[in-house]
Write a protein that binds this DNA or RNA. Structure first.
Lengths: 147, 147
DNA sequence: TTCGGAATGTTGAATTTTCAACCGTTGAAG
DNA sequence: CTTCAACGGTTGAAAATTCAACATTCCGAA
């Protein structure tokens, strides 16, 4: 009578599993596209978030780019070494460090944005625009409800 | 006139981003639940896949548990050390190694399965059973179309 | 039969991530 | 004012992951 999943149900009934699998797949697709610029997906997220020209604190950026705090520190170290971003101590609160995009970073960010939009278009073609929009909407509310 | 995302759209329009964010969130939830047994999510997936009592080759298991090949080898090393699983060389094809669940592994797997089903129920409550079912369906077809 | 390429796993080095401890700064209570 | 708990970020050691190279086995073609 119940439709709740039973103990011997396949692992694919779990939302946690389906999300991990879908994320893995789509992430791989994006990864291979970004390989044209030799940039990992995490750096695309960082550059994308910074692409409006505003600076972000490490904390805000970590949350937006889906990275843990120490991981972001070290990723930013690499990106600074590559002259993609730079740090500025926040004058209003000297505990904070603001991250800004360099010109080089912005240029790279634009090229990456084109690649990422390509992927969006590709998925929309192969999967259908309407299901894709619906999926995005459902994911958005799931994230809201889980934060 | 077009509804295709523009270059300066926020990162949240990207399916790749929403999937990563949702996965991160749900994975964290599951992680904290599984912490009661001190087991990482990857080992839950492995034990879950093996819970039917059949053995799996490293390759099949890697695919099912969403792990890269060398990562799985090392994870299985740890699980063998913990007496959760064991290796048997496939008699039919001696290149292959079959992984089986020990009794201890099965018992742990049952406890983990209960925790994972708890999470499913929790999500269904907070998010709604119908949206959840729809989300699962959309993810399933996305995975099919992307494999 | 024998050879060579493909399939299956493992290994070790290098990279990356994580965990815990740390330092400097802030804000606010006493 | 002081003091002190909390915040924001970094660091170094430990753990996990990845990459490339490797060994073994299988299989098909010469």
């Amino acid at each position: 009578m119940s439709d709740s999943p039973s103990a011997d149900a396949p692992i694919t009934v779990h939302l946690a599993y389906l999300l991990a699998q879908a994320n893995r797949e789509i992430n791989r697709q994006l990864e291979t596209r970004l390989r044209a610029e030799g940039v990992p997906v995490e750096q695309w997220r960082i550059l994308k978030v910074l692409s409006d020209g505003n600076g972000r604190s490490m904390g805000d950026l970590a949350e937006a780019a889906l990275l843990n705090h120490p991981t972001l520190t070290k990723t930013i170290d690499r990106m600074v070494a590559d002259s993609l971003v730079y740090r500025i101590s926040d004058p209003g609160d000297r505990r904070k460090v603001l991250i800004f995009c360099s010109e080089r970073g912005k240029a790279l960010g634009r090229r990456l944005a084109a690649l990422a939009l390509d992927q969006e278009a590709f998925i929309a073609e192969n999967y259908g625009g309407k299901p894709m929009a619906q999926l995005k909407r459902l994911l958005g509310t799931l994230i809201e409800r889980s934060g």
